[in-house]
Nucleic acid binder design. Structure first.
Lengths: 148, 148
DNA sequence: GTATATGCAAAGTCTTTGCATCGTT
DNA sequence: AACGATGCAAAGACTTTGCATATAC
């Protein structure tokens, strides 16, 4: 997951892709790398402003667009809530969304998904590029609090 | 899937839930039952207007909200595109979203998902209520057209 | 020096909401 | 008759875009 990536990984990949390395992009990348959960654009912008006070939402969105194109971040959309982003892990993962506290937990799928993807390819001729898997439910904490 | 449901199923459930049966709700339900793919609110409204010319987007959204609460429809959100709805099938299903032509195909999961859900419950204490599973990729048609 | 990226503000989309009226129960 | 639902229009929330300026290469 994200914490295993070397610091500066994202901006490095941005540079490699031919994009310029700017203060705004560095700030966004740094915040993403240091985030332990999915963050929405506004939160991301607020954090980035601690590093680069002048940065604004437009630049955050523009940077996210690039990172997404490069497959470096992953966006989760839940209902009509604002999109939330996190550094994309190499393996597919399930996002567990608690409808009580709105937290998003991760569940790596690793090889679990491979057979399914092969099956889908064979069945539908559909070539999967990216997985956006959200399970909505109630997390352990909230469940526990309910019982009290 | 949706085509197996008896016509009038949705509005019946709406009535059972204690909501009034109105022309607007009937129209939305009928369109959903007759739709073979996921439709967005605007498309749904346009279709519903063929049945009830006066209906408008607000009523469509309001009806969708009710149907969603009752677990009768399922919303799929892809990137920043408008939400799309379809009648919820009993079984969990994967939504295969073609990033070329924007079509959404379905892939029933049936029992495939059960072991995973049990695993998640055991691992994270997370109780899954609803699955929103989208795989992005390229469908057979588009793949074929690319090769030409 | 030149092409790109930024910040700001304005526009765009999709969705929700207030309110007077209408329709269902 | 009473309460809930509708249609309209306006507001809201999130995201994108135009443009002049600033910056990376």
């Amino acid at each position: 997951m994200s914490e295993k990536l070397p610091p500066g990984y994202l901006i490095l990949r941005v540079r490699e892709a031919g994009y310029r390395v700017t203060a705004a992009r560095m700030a966004v990348c740094q915040v993403l790398e240091e985030s332990e959960t999915h963050v929405n654009a506004e939160e991301l912008c607020a954090e980035a402003q601690k590093i680069l006070p002048a940065i604004n939402l437009a630049s955050v969105y523009r940077t996210l667009t690039i990172l997404d194109e490069l497959g470096l971040v992953h966006e989760v959309r839940i209902g009509t809530l604002p999109g939330r982003w996190a550094v994309a892990s190499g393996d597919a993962e399930l996002h567990l969304h608690c409808t009580e506290c709105e937290a998003v937990y991760h569940h790596p799928l690793k090889d679990t998904l491979e057979p399914l993807l092969d099956h889908i390819k064979a069945d539908h001729g559909f070539e999967v590029q990216r997985a956006n898997l959200v399970l909505n439910g109630v997390c352990g904490n909230c469940m526990h609090n309910h019982l009290k």
